[in-house]
Amino acid sequence: MSEGGDKDNGKRQDRLRLVISSSPHVRKGTSVERIMYAVVLCLIPALAASVYCFGYKVLAIVGVSVGAALLTEFLAKRLRKKPFEMDGSAVITGLILGLMMPPGLEWGQLWLPAVGAFFAIAIVKEAFGGLGSNIWNPAAGGFLFCLLSWAAMMGVGWIADGGIVWEMMRTEATPLVDLEKGEVSMEVVKNLFLGNVNGALGETSALALLIGGLALIGLRYIDWRIPLSFIGTVGVLTFAQTGDPILTLAYLFAGGLFLGAFFMLTDYVTSPLTGWGRVLFGVGAGAVVVVIRLFANPMEGVAYSIIFMNMFTPLIDRYLKTEPFGRIKKEAEG
């Protein structure tokens, strides 16, 4: 088929080109870059909420993370003798990783997001073959490496100075610590939803994350099945275990649940291809989150659940393969 009507291909139009390609033949302007930068734009509300809550240091933390991600990507591509492209995937990884950092990082600890971004890009992504071949969501991998290596730094120092949260915070614990004690009111839930709480940079405001996530679903860049089944499973299981609707709401709006649901679980590379596969994927991740939050030692389980289900993705894809249209099933022999 000839590649004629494409506006971008003005230079190629003057010569006839015959391209033999497999279906689908329908063309659309959507490209990797466009989707990636749309995701970046949809993370802006969360970033803005974070700056509003914690002050301008947030920009430095996220900036270091994004810069380190881009630099690592550039160096890794050089090492692999592959062209470096600004396809935006490294920007997203850096941005999400930055948003998972604690706000209380000192200026001297800004190497922490940089090391996390390096691990995410160099080990989780490029070592396995770059974009499209990573085994986990890179940001989740980088975050877990930081968490497991420098647990003290990632956990304490949650209280930031400058933003509005600083004025309000009197407890030193993160909301999930309070939740484990089982003392919540609607006021806490409201704060969790709007963002007047302590926590990692991007997790403060469930509302801001929800805006970005719904925009991505509206643009059809991500599948609604994954966030819905993920958040739904967490809600149902938490309610079944605690029996308290307010506490359940608080658990839903707390921590990185929305960030993971909309921006990390939906990563194309590491999520299943079929609709039911995605539902299964979301349900499995939700179950892991609830088990870790309510029964296990770590406070938050979103990153673990993402990595855990990422590794099940090939299996899910294999067993929930769709039948090709029109294929006749072989009769059982004998």
Binding site: V115, F145, L148, S149, W150, A151, M153
Partner: peptide
Amino acid sequence: TPATAIGLPY
């Protein structure tokens, strides 16, 4: 501040 993860099994 060493990366304790490297010293652990994984």
